[in-house]
Simulated scan of single mutants.
Amino acid sequence: QAFLCVTSILSVAVFRDHLVLEDLVEEMKKQSPGLDFGPLQPDGQIAVQGSFPALRKLREFLLLKAKSLSEEDQREGKSHQRLRRKVQEHRGATEMKNSIGDTHRETQVVVLDTDIYHYMKSFHPKILQAADVVISGVTDGDITTVCIDSAGSTGAAQGLRAKRTIEIFSVKLQRILRKERICFKEPSRAEKQKYKQLCGRLKPRHPGVLLLPYDTHIDVVGTSACVFGFTEDLKR
């Protein structure tokens, strides 16, 4: 099902400490003249409507803006950030929904941080399951778009309920999860295999952590206590 017109509720409150939000909104309007912007709310939320590709371009603009501000923070010594801050910086939007009226089929969309999505899928898979709906995720780097497809009036109600459940649970995870990145000393196959085997041996002792392997590093995601325990074991 194609998204011809999408309404997105953006939260730009995360930029409040760095920018004048009204000026940021004006910059967003110049960046995306094809989108319709609603009034900026006191809590930093603003409704934006337009085509899905145009909203994706706006999202990329906000990601670059957030990344540059994040790099400034790191240069100032703010190097340790929780996933909650990361989601706010990289996402910029807490929800997107299909605005086309369709009595037979509806699609709800929730945008999540990819680490949050993988953790939810691994440790709380029932959150991503519901009767009368089909829930699927599409990952694009740090962002995962969760689509909730439903059919009929009963399915539509279930879809809205599933969407709300995912949103509420993702907020809980944002508050308690953190991530530690373990970088390989050298980008060799032997080095990656060594870390893979070591992490494999340690994982049974730390069932509460999620290991996400990449070409140059391994991300360890979990609560502060779980991540700390795993990384301390890894150093021994």
Rank of each mutant, 00 (worst) to 15 (best):
T114R: 06
C226Y: 00
T107E: 11
Q158R: 13
A131I: 02
D132K: 12
G200C: 05
D149E: 14
T94K: 11
P204E: 00
F184K: 04
Y119H: 03
S224Y: 02
I168T: 14
E22M: 06
S122A: 13
M28V: 07
L177R: 03
R161D: 13
V6S: 04
H18F: 13
K163Q: 14
I143K: 02
Y117V: 01
H90W: 10
L202Q: 01
D23Q: 13
Y214G: 14
K86E: 15
H217G: 04
E89Q: 11
V111N: 00
I176L: 15
T107I: 14
A156T: 08
K78Q: 04
L198F: 05
L19T: 07
I127N: 02
T7N: 09
D142T: 11
G222W: 03
Q129K: 13
E106H: 15
K78W: 01
P187W: 00
V227W: 00
S150R: 06
E22G: 08
S224E: 05
S122H: 11
E26T: 11
H80A: 05
R161N: 06
Q108Y: 13
F3A: 06
F61T: 09
L69T: 06
T216F: 05
Q1S: 14
P207V: 02
D142L: 14
T139N: 04
S68V: 12
G229N: 02
R105Q: 12
H104I: 03
G50M: 07
L10C: 14
V171E: 11
V20R: 12
Q108A: 10
M120R: 04
D73P: 01
D113S: 12
D115L: 05
Q1E: 12
V138S: 14
L4T: 12
L128I: 11
